[in-house]
Write a protein that binds this DNA or RNA. Sequence first.
DNA 1: ATCCCGAGGG
DNA 2: CCCTCTGGAT
Length: 208
Amino acid sequence: MTKKEIAVNAVHALKKEYPDAICSLVYTDPLQLLIATRLAAQCTDARVNMVTSSLFDRFKTAQDFADSTPEEVAEYIKSCGLYKTKSKDIVEMARMLCDDFGGVVPDNIDDLTKLPGIGRKTANLVCGDIFGQPAVVVDTHCIRITKRLGLHDLKDQKKIEFALRELLPPDESNDFCHRLVLHGRAVCTARKAKCEECCMNGFCPKKI
DNA sequence: ATCCCGAGGG
DNA sequence: CCCTCTGGAT
C-alpha cells in the first residue's frame, strides 16, 4: 500500500470512529485558543482547561495581559509546567498583539509565528479552527501516529507538516489532526498502543 | 521512569 | 539535528 493510500484509509477510518473532530481545549475567542494552545506544551489539556478557567476570568483582552506582568500570569499557570517561559511568552505576545496587530489575533501563519512563543503547531491550530483554513497541526500525537502508520520517518516538525500536506486532502487535514489527538489519547497511546481495538489495525504497518 | 495537543535556542 | 524548560499524572 502506498503512503497516499494509507493516508486516505486513515482519514476515513478515523472519521468513522470519531465523527466530530472536537478540540478539547476550552475557549471562546481567538486569543483564548492562542493562549490555551501555548499552555498545552508538555501538559495535558485537562489541566490547561483547569487553569484557563480562572486565567480568562482575570484577563479578558490582549490589553489586559499586556498591562500585567509575567509574575502575575505565572501564578495562574504554574501547575501547567514550563511556567517561566510560558508566562513570559504570554505577556510579550499580548504586547506585540497590541503594538503591531491592533490587539487582534492575525489570520495567517507568517504573522502568528512572529508572536513570541507561537510556533507552527499553534499557528496551524488557530488558522484551522478559528479561520477555517486548511491546516496541518503537528503535535506529539500526530508525530507518533503518522510515523507508526508509515506515512513518514522524519523528526523535524516542519518537514512532517509538509510531508503530510502532500498526503492529505486539504479540506480533511484539520479534522484529521484533531482525530489523531483523540485517537492518540484513547488507543494509539505512547507507551502501549492498543492495536487490537484500533480502527486502523487492518492497514497499519505498526512501525512502533 | 515516562509522558502530556511545544517553542526556541545551540 | 539536539537540548532545555517544568508540574502533574500514571
